[in-house]
């Protein structure tokens, strides 16, 4: 059987620094998978490798049965890989609508600028930005910009959506909204790889969790199991706080599962 995405023995080093080491995992269609790890664990590097921003030093990436290890970002975008950025990257002087239309036109299915704008409008309605469509992208607040990124990614008609810290900097109410949004997206059949700091988001959304530490995949599996994994606990907090985290993970698990 074939996986949606298969990462095999992926390594990337910058000079002497090994950012990812021999990482292997698979994603299946329709899954929501969380990718967690302490700061500097190599999460964003991994996303950059998958989306063609970086080329791997070793290993391979197979997406929908095709080896995409060496593809450029624009090819990744067209092949159904879309991502949002930790630091939002809009086209500053374009309107919100045009920003989203760019995704629809160049990576999505839109055949003309007019159609791209129509599609963009639908995506903006979906994320709740329709009333801001004609404002310049720079006029948006941070939570709105995050939603703009999401709309742009969705306009690219992705099979796999990589969400890099979409919830960073949002307050609780906004996070709840974002969670609902992500569930709806997943329900549309889009596979999601969720890079997150917030355990609450990861545990309540993902069916599976991958843990990176110092560029290595140290654990993967169901959220509960992973969070109780001593290796993970140690990676995050050192052995000292192992017990406390275990208790906490139990609690969140009860709340959300």
């Amino acid at each position: 059987m074939s996986h949606l995405l298969e990462v095999r023995n992926l390594s990337k080093s910058f000079g002497g620094l090994q950012a990812t080491k021999d990482v292997s995992f698979t994603l299946e269609e329709g899954e929501i998978v969380g990718l967690i790890g302490p700061n500097g664990a190599g999460k964003t590097t991994l996303v950059n490798l998958i989306t063609g921003v970086l080329s791997p030093s070793a290993g391979s990436i197979v997406f929908r049965g095709r080896d995409v290890s060496r593809q450029r970002p624009w090819q990744a975008a067209r092949s159904g890989l879309a991502r949002t950025f930790q630091i939002v990257q809009p086209f500053p002087q374009m309107t919100v609508l045009e920003n989203v239309a760019a995704g629809a036109l160049f990576a999505g299915a839109a055949s003309s600028r007019a159609q791209a704008e129509r599609e963009a409008m639908e995506h903006l309605e979906f994320v709740g930005l329709a009333d801001q469509a004609l404002r310049p992208a720079t006029a948006l607040t941070l939570p709105s910009r995050k939603r703009l990124e999401l709309a742009k990614s969705l306009a690219m008609k992705p099979k796999l959506l990589l969400l890099d810290e979409v919830n960073a900097g949002l307050n609780t109410a906004e996070i709840d909204k974002a969670l609902a949004l992500m569930r709806t997206i997943a329900a549309r059949g889009i596979t999601i790889l969720l890079i997150e700091h917030l355990m609450k988001v990861v545990t309540s959304l993902s069916t599976r969790v991958l843990v990176l530490h110092h560029g290595e995949l140290i654990s993967q599996g169901a959220p509960q199991a992973v969070l109780e994994d001593p290796k993970v606990v140690e990676a995050y907090l050192g052995s000292k706080f192992a017990a406390r985290l275990a208790a906490q993970a139990q609690e969140t698990g009860v709340e959300h599962v």
């Binding site: 990257q89 086209f91 500053p92 374009m94 760019a102």
Partner: peptide, 20 residues
């Protein structure tokens, strides 16, 4: 449209599928 995207943010243009 693609050129305007490039002029504003070349990396982002690459990411939305423009053959920069």
């Amino acid at each position: 449209f693609g050129l305007r995207c490039i002029s504003q943010n070349e990396d982002a243009a690459d990411m939305v599928g423009i053959q920069v």
